[in-house]
């Protein structure tokens, strides 16, 4: 299997023309950037606002949970038939699926900022606006970017699925390959999609590292000096982690909301 795969990938014919690897890769990338960009523009302000005011949080959590269960293939085929078979219809689907993780990240990020820190911000006389930008957003950065990373992964995966309704991109290789019983092609497509996803995630984790204030990066490392029994963070066991965003949105790469 591996030799055929290498053979397929190194065949110069597969690197040229409208179905060539560079073209498909750029297409895929383009869908992802457009969809994730749009979703960020919509979801980030709303998430920050809701997190800041605390109003509408429950509604948001409920809506987010419902959207998480939405099957991508169903959404994509549904939009294709309803909006009409255009690329726009498919892109709408991608945006819809990218919104919840960004919303959840921004909302829970701001929500989970230490209340004492926010109190201190009020205490030193910051306006609401200053509090949001100088205190809440920087502290929420890890979760905000975690949400965006999730959204990008979501979109990369969904764009591959959306090849089913005729969207370009790397998903084409997989689906065309299945139809033509050309397994090396299927495998090559899968590999390229996976690599793209991993690459984008690595890039975004780099961005996350750069943007997150240094003081938050080291948080939680704890003192390494003297051993002492672990003191409890709280008196009782935690009931349940905030179930806003899904998995543990903790800045690591594996905190996916859901997979496509």
């Amino acid at each position: 299997m591996i030799p055929q795969l290498i053979e397929w990938l190194t065949d110069p014919a597969h690197w040229r023309g409208p179905d060539g690897i560079p073209k498909r890769l750029l297409e895929h990338l383009y869908y992802c950037l457009v969809a994730a960009g749009f979703a960020t523009l919509v979801a980030l302000p709303v998430g920050l606002f809701i997190g800041h005011t605390g109003r509408g949080g429950t509604l948001l959590v409920g809506a987010g949970n419902a959207l998480r269960a939405l099957p991508t293939l169903g959404l994509v085929t549904f939009l294709y038939l309803v909006v009409g078979g255009t690329q726009t219809a498919t892109l709408i689907g991608l945006v819809v699926l990218a919104v919840p993780p960004i919303l959840a990240g921004a909302y829970s990020g701001v929500q989970q900022v230490d209340r004492r820190v926010v109190d201190a911000a009020v205490g030193v006389g910051m306006t609401r606006w200053q509090r949001l930008w100088q205190v809440e957003v920087p502290n929420a950065m890890p979760l905000i970017l975690g949400g965006i990373r999730n959204a990008v992964l979501q979109v990369v995966a969904t764009a591959a699925v959306a090849a089913y309704v005729g969207l370009g991109g790397l998903g084409r290789y997989v689906l065309d390959g299945i139809r033509a019983v050309d397994y090396p092609k299927v495998l090559a497509g899968a590999l390229l999609v996976a690599l793209l996803a991993i690459l984008l995630d690595v890039v975004l984790s780099g961005v996350q590292w750069l943007v997150v204030p240094a003081g938050l990066r080291t948080a939680g490392v704890g003192d390494v000096g003297r051993r002492r029994p672990r003191r409890p963070a709280r008196r009782e066991v935690r009931g349940e982690t905030t179930d806003t965003g899904g998995g543990r949105v903790d800045g690591g790469a594996g905190h996916g909301l859901r997979k496509r």
Partner: peptide, 22 residues
Amino acid sequence: VFGGASVLYTVPSLALFVVIPG
């Protein structure tokens, strides 16, 4: 484990579905 889990989780489902037989 965490490294493996995060890479695995990054792989899109369609890709994983078709790679597994291989």
